[in-house]
Design a protein around this nucleic acid. Structure first.
Length: 349
DNA sequence: AAAACGGGGAC
DNA sequence: GTCCCAGTTTT
């Protein structure tokens, strides 16, 4: 039996019931695919359910303010996905009559949709003959066919896409594409594949050569940059006498674009109170600050894929009236990074 | 071609 | 600690 038929048979017997498996609505498939980019099913599923409930159609999503989209996305990471999601929703809703394109060629033109996602939507929703190549497929193909070429050198992805196209079936592309990914996620797992009772173990090159744990080959280690964050948690009052604090929106390039955070003083290394005081932005009216207390002596090291954020929170009490302050009860309405959300939860304003 | 971009779970 | 997840965009 050919490779693709084995995959289809395995999938028929082992598929999980997932919320997006019972529809071919391009909106819902698109939503699930964007959310699952570089994200495990278990982590993405609650967000998918939340979004479908909150935004039943692409028009609902398009009509929402970006702030609302980011708030619902909070905690899922890679926030450019949320911003691109919203931009594409607007385009589909307002310029394409609310209907997603029905081909790979048109889908890949949309923001946030690359080769994988265009292939997934085109095949799953419209039956177009496009093989998907995600992290699971790289692994399954590299092992089964014994490909020792790196998956991420120049031409690597193209090589695997071609191989994927050569071995895909001409029928049942919907089930096959989902099947090979599911097979990679469940059976041909990265660390502990179940080779003993694998339906492909008699013809798997990696297994025969005892190279299962060496494949796929991936180049590059991520080098991490250390950064030192000092957040100023301002406590004051507004004109109405309400207790307020301050949040700023991150703009420009870099991490957490368009999310909110406390006023930030970044430094080259850990700093003390004296150095911090000299760095406080003038718009915080440093002369009207009563006292500053360090919340956490021990740095919180928040780890991103390319950065370690050594973070300390400083509680800044002021008698000055903060006219643009955010009432404490409203803080939770803003989209913030997990680092900030965890502080808010622990601090209990 | 390489780096940037989150957060969490498995080991 | 390391690896990597239904990848895409920017430099």
């Amino acid at each position: 039996m050919p490779f693709s038929q084995k995959i289809l048979q395995w999938y028929a017997e082992n598929k999980r019931e997932l919320p997006w498996r019972s529809t071919t609505d391009p909106y819902k498939i698109w939503l699930s695919e964007i959310m699952l980019q570089q994200t495990r099913v278990a982590q993405g599923t609650p967000y998918y359910l939340k979004f479908v409930k909150h935004f039943p159609t692409v028009v609902h999503l398009a009509d929402a303010p970006e702030e609302e989209v980011l708030k619902l996305w909070q905690g899922l990471g890679y926030y450019s996905r949320a911003r691109n999601l919203h931009a594409t929703a607007k385009k589909v809703a307002y310029k394409m009559n609310g209907e997603f394109p029905d081909s790979y060629a048109e889908l890949i033109k949309l923001k946030g949709i690359g080769d994988y996602t265009a292939s997934a939507i085109a095949s799953i929703c419209f039956g177009e003959l496009q093989p998907v190549v995600d992290g699971n497929v790289f692994r399954v193909l590299a092992r089964y066919f014994g490909v020792d070429r790196p998956i991420n050198d120049s031409g690597g992805p193209k090589y695997f896409k071609k191989l994927a196209r050569e071995v895909m079936p001409l029928e049942e592309i919907r089930e096959y594409n989902q099947g090979i990914m599911e097979f990679g996620a469940i059976q041909c797992a990265p660390k502990k594949p179940y080779c003993l009772h694998c339906p492909l173990n008699e013809s798997c090159v990696a297994l025969q050569k005892n190279k299962v744990h060496e494949l796929p080959i991936k180049l590059r280690k991520t080098k991490v940059r250390n950064r030192f964050f000092n957040y100023l948690v301002v406590l004051g009052q507004n004109e109405q006498g309400e207790s307020v604090s301050i949040l700023n929106q991150r703009t420009g390039k870099g991490i957490w674009q368009n999310l909110y955070e406390f006023p930030l003083v970044e430094s080259e290394a850990r700093i003390g109170l004296d150095t911090l005081k000299k760095s406080i932005p003038s718009n915080l009216q440093p002369d009207l600050i009563n006292e500053i207390n360090l919340y956490n002596e021990k740095e919180i090291v928040h780890k991103l894929s390319h950065q370690h954020l050594h973070t300390r929170f400083w509680i800044v009490k002021t008698t000055a009236v903060i006219s643009k302050g955010i009432p404490l009860k409203d803080l939770e309405k803003y989209a913030v990074p997990v680092l900030i959300a965890e502080f808010m939860k622990a601090f209990k304003f």
